[in-house]
Design a protein around this nucleic acid. Structure first.
Lengths: 228, 228
DNA sequence: GTCTATAAGGGGATAGAC
DNA sequence: GTCTATCCCCTTATAGAC
């Protein structure tokens, strides 16, 4: 579903359709004739992630993705028969990357306040991954629509983040490092909301916003008020 | 809000050139022949706001707006020659409504912490204006792209909100009701980010999120820590 | 001011050759 | 696995009648 398509300003990229001269060979970074399917798919997903981030899902034509990945539109469809399927894969890999990024930071699963420290780390990391942040923000805005193919992903994304932060605070209470009266879930939702909202402001005026500092300031406030 | 109760159910609306049978007559709820331009424009803007909110700007075709407003696509273009122009008007009116809403709440311009109280009030009001919230969130996501026609509006929107909240805290310091060391601007950015982020979560799972309560909790935290 | 008709160009997807 | 060619729908915008 998700009918929509839409146009507006085609950037460079000699797209398709319009009797334009067929592009040939193009020094593609490809090896010889046959390339491993896995490699091609990876290239496609990387290109799609970048373009969806830059222009949004709806506004990005498959031809643009194909072009960026160095194959024709039909070649692309051979690997991802539908645009929605491609989006699903992009989102899956986006989440995997977040998890991997944090996993390297610790040798044991985070517990208690550590969960919150990890989130702060993630915000700092995000300050250096504009494309990834743009992908999330741009897609989140569209995916608010229940019909959008990314809707379920967005809901799940929020749920898991809020749950993790809530659990962290509950563990802190259990460990005696946080007061029992702490409104854990509300604070967790606030943290997630803050992260999303800061990203929005940061993307619009990168030079005026220090996401990591602002987020750390928030966490500091929570800690100083609710530490036991 | 909510545009025109304009019934007339044919949304299928055979739009363009596919030699489909021309639709005729259509009993529109319109008065006689000529209708005041102002009225028609108002109907159009209301419909557009609703649809942009529901599906996003990019994903909403002008034909859908025209249909919702009860005129043909060309009729619509007579009043708003371009889609961007229509968006500009929608955004202008959205901001006017926010201002008006808050203006009725007080008889004097808010000062100091009152500015923050007003923001809390606004969040509560927003809990009852899903369409308006959806419009903001959906557009904000797209407008992160510097090429998007709403980009300038988004930047200005954030700037003015952050400025107002910062000024409030500075006044509180001047009035002796806040500590001088308060990180006013960071807190202001956090408040705005929180508002935007909570809206996102709320739109996805309305029943699980109480925006007003969460926001109030945040403000309470700021107050209890920095009140003098 | 509003309509019908149509232009002009995307857009996703399919068929079938190589 | 990849391409070319093509289908068919959607979308914005214009022309001109009423």
């Amino acid at each position: 579903m998700s009918a929509s398509a839409n146009a507006d300003a085609d950037e460079g990229a000699g797209a398709a359709g319009t009797g334009s001269p067929p592009r040939r060979g193009r020094g593609r970074p490809r090896g010889a004739g046959g390339e491993s399917t896995a490699n091609t798919r990876a290239r496609i997903v990387a290109s799609a992630a970048e373009l969806f981030a830059e222009r949004g899902f709806h506004a990005t034509p498959m031809t643009a993705v194909a072009d960026a990945a160095g194959l024709s539109q039909s070649g692309l469809l051979h690997h991802f028969p539908s645009k929605e399927g491609l989006l699903a894969e992009v989102l899956r890999q986006r989440d995997l990357r977040d998890l991997a990024e944090l996993a390297t930071a610790r040798d044991h699963p985070p517990r208690g306040w550590e969960v919150w420290d990890d989130m702060t780390t993630l915000v700092r990391l995000n300050s250096g991954r504009e494309a990834l942040v743009r992908l999330f923000t741009s897609l989140a805005g569209e995916a608010v629509d229940p019909e959008h193919p990314g809707h379920g992903w967005l809901a799940e994304h929020h749920r898991s983040a809020v749950d993790a932060l809530t659990r962290g605070l509950e563990e802190a209470v259990a460990d005696g490092t946080a007061q029992a009266a702490i409104p854990a879930q509300s604070l967790a939702r606030q943290a997630v909301a803050l992260m999303d909202g800061l990203q929005l402001q940061w993307l619009v005026r990168p030079r005026d916003v220090d996401m990591a500092a602002d987020f750390a300031c928030f966490v500091e406030g929570v800690r100083s008020r609710w530490t036991r």
